[in-house]
């Protein structure tokens, strides 16, 4: 395999080889090869020609469809802030509901996760203080959009499933065997509402995934 082809391959290594990427790779390669032949015809040695050609393109991130350059620190910071806000909100809601058996463990688990996330956030802010320079990075907005869509679809399926399951548990015997629905007192009613309501709290997961796209556009640079 020739040196130039290897070099071009290395530029595209971190991208999934879709047909679009393959086309772009071929276009870049044939143009560089034409340039290299031109330089050799103009009297440069093959090594000099290769070096010049290689220096003319050192990254392809800006050429990838959907790639945008963002301010990494601001992006990560706001994403972490929203993550903490949504986790904390869910946690606060679960605290008064702890009397219900199904919420108890979840509430403690959330407190634990929030503690770790909070400590990490503070550590992240401290790190930033040390480096104190703007870092930019390329992210792919199309990828974020795709992930967001998939997560929303999965979440909708989960929510629908849990809704149907809860309904079956509480009203199934009534629907199929026409046995009356049996709810003794306010605690049982509350428990039923909690079982319906609890899966709704997981809406923060697709929300957090959806942040990527929104924040990438917000913190786009250049």
């Amino acid at each position: 395999m020739n040196k130039l082809k290897e070099y071009v391959d290395s530029l595209f290594r971190k991208y999934r080889q879709t047909s679009k990427i393959r086309d772009l790779k071929e276009e870049v390669y044939t143009n560089l090869e034409a340039k290299r032949m031109d330089l050799i015809a103009a009297g440069f040695s093959p090594d000099e020609a290769f070096d010049q050609v290689r220096n003319s393109i050192t990254e392809v991130d800006s050429l990838i469809e959907g790639n945008i350059k963002i301010d990494r620190f601001s992006f990560c910071r706001e994403r972490m802030q929203w993550m903490l806000i949504s986790l904390l909100s869910v946690w606060v809601i679960t605290i008064p509901l702890r009397v219900f058996y199904s919420v108890f463990a979840l509430s403690y688990l959330l407190a634990f996760v929030i503690l770790i996330a909070g400590v990490y956030y503070i550590y992240f802010l401290k790190q930033r203080g040390k480096q104190c320079q703007k870092q930019t990075v390329y992210v792919n907005i199309l990828y974020y959009r795709k992930v967001k869509r998939v997560v929303w679809v999965l979440w909708s399926m989960y929510f629908l499933f849990s809704f149907v399951m809860t309904t079956c548990v509480y009203f199934g015997s009534n629907l199929w065997f026409s046995r009356p629905v049996h709810i003794d007192g306010p605690y049982a009613l509350g428990n039923m509402l909690v079982n319906y309501f609890l899966p709704l709290l997981t809406i923060v997961i697709p929300f957090i995934f959806g942040l990527n796209e929104r924040l990438a556009l917000k913190y786009e640079v250049e």
């Binding site: 802030q81 929203w82 806000i85 904390l88 946690w91 606060v92 605290i95 008064p96 702890r98």
Partner: peptide
Amino acid sequence: MKTRDRIIIALGIIGIFFVFATI
């Protein structure tokens, strides 16, 4: 930026207050 940090702290305090209240 600052507003969101304040919201985080406020939510944390509310949460801790809730925990003590329920106890």
